[in-house]
Simulated assay, not measured.
Amino acid sequence: MKKLLAVAVVCFSLVLLAACGSGSEEGSGSGSDGGESKLAKLKESGTVTVGFANEEPYAYQENGELKGAAVDIAQAAFKEMGIENVKSKLADFSQLIPGLNAGKFDVITAGMAINPDRCKNADFAEPSMMYGEGLVVQKGNPMDLHSYKDIAEKGASVSIMQGATEIEYVQKMGVKESQIQTAADIPATFSAVASGRADATTGTEMTVKMALESSGNDKLMFVEDFKQPEIEGIPSYGAAAFHKDADELRKAYNEALAKLKENGTVKELLEKNGFSAENNSVPEDITAEGVCSGEQY
């Protein structure tokens, strides 16, 4: 009986030690795995896996090569951290955060807009770009659409990429759920408008404008005088996103990103991808925490 009691005491002590050990910094918020942090593992392997949605000019694949402003900025930041190789994985935009949380990616580099809802499921790095919205309609703009309010008041239908913030934006401007269609990607939204299944499509300004230019679709037009909606979330601030247990990795990324902002690299990479260094650079006082809390927009 005494032997059994002694064994029980030893086992109970081991359980307590294990429980106490789980409260260490490596086991809480640093993306740890068996005592080694996510950051340490990535530095050791020299490779980071990024999730992206095929959305030019933020992140897209061309001839097997991952390109785009968000990609270039992330690559530069990881290189600053000593991680040279980037392994890319394509996913539908709506599946990026679920894929991140399922461990399919180490980071999302899709120019994803920070918003309070997304902040509940992922931790964003500091923003690296700023952008507005754009509208594409059939050539000649038969319904005379120039704003989200026009879509609402004229009962127009709009096709929007699944998981995009524009779904929430148009609803805030009065567009009914029955007017909204969703599609897997930008080409699919263009197809809906060109075929007459939808009257318009919307997305971030640079995305829809450049996608339309490269598509060669003469049935569609970009609405040059589109009126930006005056609602929370616009302009949007794009940033890389990390798993909520990868604090150490995200903080190291932020430190590297801050250096790239300070030495002008971020502005150079924005311009390289068709953005404006003046209009698309993030103001110094805007932070991921401020946008997540809804205090900054």
Rank of each mutant, 00 (worst) to 15 (best):
L4I: 12
A6E: 15
A8R: 00
C11T: 11
S13K: 13
A18G: 10
A18F: 13
A19V: 15
A19M: 14
S22I: 11
E25T: 14
E25W: 14
S28R: 14
G29P: 07
S30E: 08
D33M: 15
K38Q: 13
K43T: 12
T47V: 15
V48C: 01
F52V: 01
N54H: 06
A59T: 01
Y60P: 00
E65A: 10
A70R: 08
A70N: 03
F78G: 05
K79W: 09
E80I: 06
M81P: 00
G82E: 04
G82F: 09
E84G: 02
N85F: 06
K87C: 09
K87R: 05
F93C: 01
S94Y: 14
L96D: 04
L96K: 07
I97D: 07
I97C: 00
F105M: 04
I108P: 02
T109P: 08
G111K: 05
A113K: 11
I114E: 00
D117V: 11
C119K: 07
C119M: 04
K120W: 09
F124R: 09
A125F: 05
P127I: 09
S128V: 12
M129N: 11
M130D: 05
Y131A: 02
V137A: 05
V137S: 06
Q138S: 03
L145F: 07
S147C: 04
Y148W: 13
G155L: 05
G155H: 05
S157W: 12
S157K: 14
S159K: 11
I160M: 07
T165C: 14
I167A: 02
Q171R: 12
G174T: 09
S178W: 14
Q181A: 13
T182L: 03
A183K: 01
A184F: 01
P187K: 00
P187N: 06
A188P: 05
F190L: 01
A194W: 09
A194E: 06
G196P: 03
R197M: 15
R197I: 08
D199R: 10
D199H: 07
A200T: 00
M206N: 13
M206V: 08
S214E: 04
D225M: 02
Q228H: 01
E230Y: 13
E230P: 09
E230A: 01
P235M: 12
Y237L: 02
A239F: 10
A239G: 10
A240I: 15
K244Q: 08
K244C: 05
D245R: 14
D247S: 10
E248L: 10
E248I: 12
E248T: 04
R250M: 09
N254Y: 06
N254S: 06
A256D: 10
A256H: 10
A256M: 02
L257E: 00
L260H: 10
G264D: 01
V266A: 02
K267E: 10
L269K: 08
L269P: 00
E271F: 02
K272Q: 07
G274Q: 06
F275V: 03
S276K: 07
N280G: 04
S281N: 06
I286A: 03
A288W: 07
G290P: 11
S293G: 12
Q296V: 04
Y297G: 12
